[in-house]
Simulated scan of single mutants.
Amino acid sequence: MPVVICKFLDTFTAMEIFRDASKNTGFLNGQFLLAMPGMDDSRFARSVIYVCAHSEKGAMGLIINRAQEMEFADILVQLGVLDEEQAIVMPERTRDFLVRSGGPVEMRRGFVLHSDDYLTDSTMPVAEEICLTGTIDILRAISGGRGPRKALMTLGYSGWASGQLETEIANNGWLTCQAPQELLFDTDMDRKYDRILSHMGVDPSRLATVAGHA
């Protein structure tokens, strides 16, 4: 098990990430990005990304179909939410909460994407019924059984500078589609990419000729 010193954002930093997107919601907010076969960056091969923030200044999203080696209980212990004895006796549902690799940027930063039945001062709306919290309070809530009904956690995120993501889509780097909650929050990592294509009615063998669309 690798030693990863997990960090969660303070309220100010979380606000900075979403400030522009909240004022001018981009058309990609709350959508999936699926990497096309011709994706130049191997770090994103067959990746599914949920776009959390999109504005004229750039975009930020989370890869949701790659599991992180570090387990949720280890993160709770590192952050001092629980001690090792408490982590051992956590309920199975909480202990098995999957941690995902959200992207190559700030790979020790933690984010929780979740349903809107959990809200704090640091929670940011992303799309209808979907929010993101990047502060440690949500980990305490989840570990104590008081967390949101649906949630996923990532370490790291994926980011694009102004106009970069739009250019990549225009160059057939990404396929875009709406993001149903049942496909967003489920834990079937291995089949998620193909299941989303099937949901879209896209034949994988024809992906090379399909242009990105919103």
Rank of each mutant, 00 (worst) to 15 (best):
10 D>G: 04
22 S>E: 15
37 P>C: 07
46 R>I: 01
61 G>W: 00
8 F>E: 01
47 S>F: 05
15 M>V: 06
45 A>N: 13
15 M>L: 12
62 L>E: 08
40 D>S: 15
59 A>T: 06
49 I>T: 09
48 V>M: 10
44 F>W: 02
52 C>H: 03
31 Q>H: 15
15 M>F: 14
42 S>K: 12
57 K>V: 06
46 R>T: 04
20 D>S: 05
51 V>Q: 00
36 M>Q: 14
29 N>Y: 10
7 K>P: 00
14 A>V: 08
58 G>D: 06
23 K>S: 12
13 T>N: 05
36 M>K: 12
30 G>A: 13
21 A>N: 02
23 K>P: 03
43 R>E: 11
27 F>V: 14
39 M>P: 07
63 I>P: 03
39 M>S: 03
27 F>N: 10
10 D>N: 12
18 F>E: 00
38 G>N: 15
47 S>P: 08
41 D>K: 02
7 K>W: 03
20 D>T: 04
17 I>Y: 07
29 N>K: 13
18 F>G: 00
52 C>D: 05
63 I>E: 03
34 L>S: 04
64 I>F: 10
41 D>S: 07
61 G>F: 00
31 Q>L: 15
60 M>C: 10
42 S>A: 13
24 N>L: 10
10 D>P: 04
63 I>C: 13
13 T>K: 08
19 R>H: 11
10 D>H: 08
17 I>F: 09
42 S>D: 12
18 F>K: 00
27 F>H: 13
30 G>I: 09
31 Q>F: 15
31 Q>M: 15
16 E>I: 07
22 S>H: 10
36 M>S: 13
10 D>I: 00
33 L>S: 05
42 S>M: 12
30 G>D: 14
41 D>Y: 07
48 V>D: 08
8 F>C: 04
26 G>Y: 09
40 D>C: 11
15 M>Y: 13
32 F>Y: 07
30 G>L: 12
12 F>N: 06
24 N>Y: 14
17 I>V: 13
51 V>D: 01
17 I>G: 00
25 T>G: 13
12 F>P: 01
30 G>W: 14
16 E>A: 09
54 H>S: 00
52 C>T: 08
62 L>T: 04
14 A>M: 15
25 T>Y: 11
36 M>N: 08
17 I>Q: 02
9 L>N: 08
59 A>L: 04
58 G>N: 02
50 Y>Q: 01
48 V>Y: 10
26 G>S: 06
14 A>T: 12
43 R>S: 08
30 G>C: 14
31 Q>C: 15
33 L>A: 12
35 A>V: 01
31 Q>W: 11
15 M>E: 11
46 R>V: 01
8 F>A: 04
59 A>M: 05
58 G>C: 03
58 G>E: 03
22 S>Q: 14
63 I>M: 14
64 I>E: 10
43 R>V: 03
31 Q>T: 15
11 T>W: 08
56 E>S: 15
